Simulated assay, not measured.
Amino acid sequence: MNPDHDWWYDEAAGPLVRPYAMTRGRTRANTPNLNLVTQVRAAAPPTDPGSLSPEHLQILEICTAPLSVAEVAAYLDVPLVVAKVLLGDLIERGHIAAGALFQTSDINDTTFLQAVLDGIRRI
């Protein structure tokens, strides 16, 4: 366990801040078209970091190199929908750039999709 996170994590109960509290109860991202393999990276640093949540700031830290939405969710240890909402907030503010690595219509190979799923399960 990361000692920096001891204050918000309890071994028996799990996170003391529930994932949907991070999104203020929102379950949909404001930005459409964010899927598992959408690549995101930090674009512009925030002018007022105090206006962002710790999770938003953590996303900006880890996205110095392009990551998929699934990787961001894994690094934050939150459900995919929570990562999408938080990323949507940052995309709206211009702090994160997003681009699809693959177009949905290009993903027809079930072997590739199974490899992606297996990789996510290992995270």
Rank of each mutant, 00 (worst) to 15 (best):
M1E: 09
P3R: 11
D4P: 00
H5T: 14
D6L: 05
W7G: 01
W8T: 11
Y9F: 12
Y9I: 13
D10A: 09
E11F: 04
A12K: 08
A12E: 06
A12G: 03
A12L: 15
A12N: 11
A13D: 02
P15T: 12
L16C: 08
L16A: 07
V17F: 15
V17D: 13
R18E: 02
A21K: 13
A21N: 05
T23W: 03
T23S: 08
R24L: 13
R24F: 14
R24M: 13
R24E: 14
R26F: 14
R26N: 06
T27M: 11
R28C: 15
N30M: 14
P32V: 12
P32M: 15
P32T: 12
L36P: 00
L36N: 12
V37R: 11
V37Q: 13
Q39G: 04
V40T: 01
V40G: 08
V40K: 04
R41S: 03
A43Q: 12
A43S: 09
A44W: 01
P46N: 07
D48I: 06
P49R: 10
P49Y: 06
P49H: 06
G50V: 02
G50P: 06
S51T: 07
L52G: 07
S53V: 06
E55H: 08
H56W: 02
L57K: 06
L57Q: 15
L57D: 01
L57M: 06
Q58H: 07
Q58V: 01
L60K: 01
L60R: 05
I62H: 05
I62P: 02
I62G: 07
T64Y: 08
A65T: 15
P66R: 00
L67A: 02
L67P: 01
L67D: 01
V69A: 09
A70T: 11
A70I: 12
E71C: 04
Y75T: 11
L76C: 09
L76H: 09
V78T: 08
L80F: 11
L80A: 00
V81S: 10
V81P: 03
K84R: 13
V85R: 07
V85D: 06
L86G: 01
G88H: 09
G88S: 14
L90H: 10
L90C: 03
L90I: 10
I91R: 01
E92G: 04
R93K: 15
R93V: 01
G94Q: 08
G94Y: 05
I96L: 02
I96E: 01
I96N: 05
A97D: 11
A97R: 10
A98T: 05
L101H: 04
F102P: 00
T104Y: 07
T104H: 14
T104D: 11
S105Q: 03
S105P: 04
D106A: 00
N108Y: 05
D109L: 10
T110H: 12
T110Y: 14
T110F: 13
T111S: 12
T111L: 09
T111G: 12
T111I: 09
F112N: 00
L113F: 07
L113M: 15
L113C: 09
L117R: 15
D118G: 03
G119V: 03
R121L: 13
R122P: 00
R122M: 06
I123Y: 14
I123T: 12
